[in-house]
Amino acid sequence: MALFRISPPFLAGTNRVTLQMLQVLLAMVPAVIAMVMFFGPAVLINIALALVVALATEALLLKLRQRPIKPFLSDGSAAVTAVLLAVAIPPLSPWWLTVLGVMFAIIFAKHLYGGLGYNPFNPAMVGYVLLLLSFPLEMTTWLPVQSLAEHPLNFEQAFQLIFFGDTATGLSVDTVSGATPLDAMKTQIGQQILPEYIVNQPLFGMLGGIGWEWINVWFLLGGLFLLYRKVISWHVPAAMLGTLLVLSSITALFAPELTGSPLFHLFSGGTMIGAFFIATDPVSGSTTLKGRLVFGAGVGALTYIIRIWGGYPDGVAFAVLLMNMLVPLIDYYTQPKVYGASSK
């Protein structure tokens, strides 16, 4: 066997970027299935739309930047961005919302910074935040879970709502949508209603919001799969969930009127997908192990602060982007002690 490399080592492991990305996608499958069960086929339409747009945009940008298309298109990073963004957008969002978010993420957050490996911010979250700031109404009108919905939607109706805004039977987005549990919690606490009463409403389940709790559980299981496969390290999720748990426990003990229970926070909104799939993005996150603990804790704390005092019901996206900014600093101050260095 001829040896090509100029320099040792001549052995190589089986680890590949593409393999890692594919495992991330695979780990999201159960949660996506759960979302389809709770919110109907619109979720799938969104994901498909986002995937097509992301891959096309990626190919176009690679061509414009005169980079080889095949190795970079097949690395799977654009697909991961697309799916993460698609599941974060409300299922019945109009098609242009998804397209805009995905294109912004790929073009501005990723390729203008140099493409894979060079983006300082998590592309999916940049796309999401752009949409959230520009179209707050569209971005906060979620579907109620199908069991609570007056009009469960079939595939055709979802398709028509996404692409044309209404259905032949006269359903429009406004008539079928409702608030998310986090949203409801926030608004009603604003109306001086105690959280313990709020969670008795049909929108809420055992742990978090009905439906949402199961989606979070499946994201948690997918995350554990990634941990087991060593695609991600335990540091970021542990630090983020730990911080969230500690902070919400403190509030639950001393100021229960402020917000929901610790379990509600862990299993609502984007907590689990954030902890295992978004904050663990290696490119825009911290690269040292100690730094990942700091990064995760920061994301957890900011998420919690935004959920309670911020203007938006959920804060994962903002928390991740804010912590992205601190990454160079965190990395600099969390360098491991090198072999032989005198212990400080």
């Binding site: 052995l11 190589a12 970027v17 890692q20 190795p71 140099g114 493409g115 390290s233 996150g285």
Partner: peptide, 14 residues
Amino acid sequence: AAEKAEPLPCIRCG
């Protein structure tokens, strides 16, 4: 054996 391949950019996976 390690094969000749175009390296991808570093994704800082650590």
